[in-house]
């Protein structure tokens, strides 16, 4: 028996919004530790890794490890039927071929349930080694989303250049070129507004705008985003989900042919 409850459906809606543009379907691996998902986008350029810890749920029970392959378009249709404030419970029997989403209104007067067919998906799990990154940048998630949106008007690629002075995002194309520099904040009233840079070595890497923009769909989950970079390895874009877990996106760089 698997049962996981969150007191506000809005959290699950945001998690789904953060992955459904990159992935058509994905396997949710459930264990007593929580829910894990790892999947590559269709073109195998990026990887999504989601962790929702069992202690972050309002109720969590998982008697046997369970892998639930879900069509994210179908899941999205179902979650649209929930109000943000509804309690949402996901339930499945051991070895089941369906999962049930139950929504309960705050006043307990409306209860709905939606049963969704599960899919057998080819699981390909990639091992991600522990890495000491040359540069780790933390910045407001909204600011990162704004930069990715603005720069994607100028080119297909963004160059992220990080030194101890700051981080620079650049793009160029037919229109011309654009550069956005962010310095490390000296003092801020609110921690979530800070830009911080931990640098061992300066790094300059090029990434596809299209994927960066897709990652920023996770912005509503977190005030801050963390970018981890080293030369010639994938960028890690991490959003922490308060009290519940995190979503990490890995993006392969563009490299000289």
């Amino acid at each position: 028996m698997f049962e996981a409850r969150l007191n506000a459906a809005t959290t699950l809606k945001k998690v789904l919004d953060a992955i459904k543009d990159l992935l058509n379907e994905a396997t949710f691996d459930c264990s007593d530790a929580g829910i894990q998902l790892q999947a590559m986008d269709n073109s195998h350029v990026s990887l999504v890794s989601l962790t929702l810890r069992s202690d972050g749920f309002d109720k969590f029970r998982c008697d046997r490890n369970l892998s639930m392959g879900m069509n994210l378009g179908s899941m999205s249709k179902i979650l649209k039927c929930a109000n943000n404030e509804d309690t949402v419970t996901m339930k499945a029997q051991d070895n089941a071929d369906t999962v049930t989403f139950m929504f309960e209104s705050q006043n307990h007067e409306k209860v709905s349930d939606y049963e969704m067919k599960l899919m057998n998906l080819d699981q390909e799990h990639l091992g991600i080694p522990e890495t000491d990154y040359s540069c780790v940048v933390r910045m407001p998630a909204m600011e990162f989303a704004r930069i990715c949106r603005d720069l994607s008007q100028f080119g297909e690629s963004v160059i992220i250049c990080c030194t101890k002075e700051g981080v620079k995002f650049s793009a160029s194309g037919d229109v011309g070129s654009a550069n956005i520099k962010l310095a490390q904040t000296s003092s801020v009233d609110k921690e979530e507004e800070a830009v911080t840079i931990e640098m061992q070595e300066p790094v300059s890497l090029t990434f596809a705008c299209r994927y960066l923009n897709a990652f920023t769909k996770a912005t509503p989950l977190s005030n801050q985003v963390q970018l981890s970079m080293s030369a010639d390895v994938p960028l890690v874009v991490e959003y922490r989900i308060p009290d519940l877990g995190h979503i990490r996106y890995y993006l392969a760089p563009k490299i000289e042919e």
Partner: peptide
């Protein structure tokens, strides 16, 4: 000329 690399070039199957 820049080439987009695949993520599987960096991380191997478990």
């Amino acid at each position: 000329n820049l080439e987009q690399k695949k993520i599987s070039m960096y991380y191997k199957n478990k």
